[in-house]
Design a protein around this nucleic acid. Structure first.
Lengths: 236, 236
DNA sequence: ACCTGAACACCGTTCAAGT
DNA sequence: ACCTGAACACCGTTCAAGT
C-alpha cells in the first residue's frame, strides 16, 4: 500500500538501512541456515560489499541481536491476535493459545531457538511479550510470587520451543538396518528399545518418528495444569 | 591411587590419546569458556602443534562430540550414585534426586548445555542415562506411552538444565541506576516492573536476583507431580 | 555521508615433508 | 606411526581512500 518508488525491474536502488540489513539476514537464515550468515554473504545478498554493512550495524553481534528482535517482534504480533480472556479466570486457555501462536512463528524460523539461547539481552518486543504473559497470570489470580516461578518454569516454552536433547530429525533407516539397530539397542538399552518399538508401530513414521506438536502440547499442558492447580489453591 | 610414572616435574611425556585430548578440551572450556577452545589452543594446552591432534581426533566436530561424551559420562556416574527406589512406586523421589545430581555435574561445566543443544547424536553414556530414567518410570507403573511423553516433557531438565531465555546473570546496577531503570520499566512493562520490585526486596540480591536452584526445582516438581498424577490415573 | 579495496589477525583443515 | 611447517580458504573487522 505504501508508495514505493522502485521501477518494477531489479533495483538495488533502495538505500541500506538497519531494517533492510536485518530483513536480508532473516532471509539468509531461513533459506540457508544461520551458519550461512556471514558479513560477506549478507553484503552479497544486498548487492554491497561486506564493509558497507558497518555503516548501519555495529558488528555481527548486533546483526544477531537484530535477528532476535525481528523474531520476537513476530511472536508478539502473533500473540496479540489472540483476544484476552472473557473472564480473567480463563487465563489458561488464552495463555495456551498465545504460546501455540508463538510456536507457529518459531517453526518458520528454525534457527531462532538456538540463536536466542546464546543472547543475554532481551529486546523490547520480548519484554513486551513477557509482560503480557505475566499480566495474564496476575489478572487470572496468581500471586506475584507464583507468577514469577511460573515464568521461570515455562522458560523457553513461553516462546514456543523446548530443547529436546539429541532428538534429531534422523532420516528413516532402511528397514533391515533399523531391525539390526534395534537388536543392538535391545542389548544395551532395553527400555529404550521397547519404547522405540512402540513408537515405530504407532506412528506411520520411523524410529525418530515423534509427533513434535503433540509432545510440545503435552509438556505445556502438564505445566499449565500444574500452575492452575497452584493458583486455585492460593486463591482459596 | 593408580601408579603414575611421571616424574614430579612438568612432563609432556605421556603420549597423546583421544582421552587426553578430550580431557584437555574440558579443561579449556571450564577455565576459559567454549569460545576459547580452538584446535590451536588445544594443541598448545597439550604442548603440541594443532595439526598433531588430527591423529587422534577426526576434526573439531569430533572434539565437540567428545566433550559431550565426557559430560554425559559424568552425569551417568552421578546418577548411578542414587540407589533405586525401595518400592517401585517411589519412582518420583529417585528421579528427582538423580536429576538434581545431573544438575550438579552441569553446574561444573557451564558451557555444556549450550553445546549439547547443538549436537544431534547422543553418546552411549547419554543413551544409558536415558534408558535408566525410562526404566525408573516403567517400573514405577508408567505405560510405555506415558513414559514416552514424559521423556519429551522433561527434555533437557533430565540432564539438569532448562533454558531460561535472556535471563542473564546481570551484574548489579548501581542503586540509583536501578531505580531509574525501574521507573522506565514502569511505563512500558508495568507487570514486569511490579515483579522486579518484589524480587528485589525478597532476595538479598539485585534485579536479576533469582534463585536458580529454587526455580529449577519448582519447574521440575511441577512436571514430576503432573506425571505422577497421570500415572496414578492410568494405574487405577 | 556512505561505500570500497586492501590488509590484518584469526579460524579449521590439507598436504607434503620430516623423524 | 606420529608430528611438523607452510599453505589454503574462510572468518570478522580496521583503516585509509575514494565519491
Amino acid at each position: 500500500m505504501a508508495a514505493h518508488p522502485d521501477t518494477a525491474e531489479k533495483t538495488p536502488r533502495a538505500p541500506l538501512t538497519r531494517e533492510r540489513v536485518l530483513q536480508a539476514a532473516v532471509e539468509i537464515a531461513d533459506e540457508r541456515g544461520l551458519a550461512a550468515l556471514t558479513m560477506r554473504s549478507l553484503g552479497q545478498q544486498l548487492g554491497v560489499e561486506a564493509m558497507s554493512l558497518y555503516n548501519h550495524v555495529t558488528n555481527k553481534d548486533d546483526v544477531l541481536d537484530g535477528l532476535v528482535e525481528v523474531v520476537t517482534g513476530e511472536v508478539l504480533a502473533a500473540a496479540e491476535q489472540i483476544a484476552p480472556p472473557a473472564d480473567p479466570s480463563e487465563w489458561k486457555a488464552v495463555m495456551r493459545a498465545r504460546i501455540l501462536a508463538a510456536r507457529g512463528v518459531l517453526l518458520r524460523h528454525r534457527w531462532a531457538p538456538g540463536l536466542m539461547e546464546t543472547r543475554t539481552k532481551s529486546p523490547p518486543t520480548a519484554m513486551q511479550y513477557f509482560d503480557s504473559v505475566l499480566g495474564l497470570m496476575l489478572q487470572g489470580g496468581f500471586s506475584l510470587d507464583l507468577a514469577h516461578h511460573a515464568l521461570h518454569a515455562l522458560g523457553s516454552r513461553m516462546l514456543g520451543f523446548s530443547q529436546e536433547l539429541f532428538m534429531d530429525a534422523d532420516e528413516a533407516p532402511e528397514p533391515e538396518v533399523g531391525a539390526l539397530m534395534l537388536k543392538q539397542m535391545e542389548a544395551h538399552y532395553p527400555n529404550l528399545a521397547a519404547l522405540m518399538r512402540v513408537v515405530n508401530h504407532d506412528a506411520d513414521s520411523t524410529i525418530g518418528g515423534c509427533d513434535d506438536q503433540f509432545e510440545f502440547e503435552f509438556g505445556l499442558d502438564l505445566l499449565l495444569d500444574g500452575l492452575e492447580r497452584l493458583r486455585a489453591r492460593y486463591a482459596a
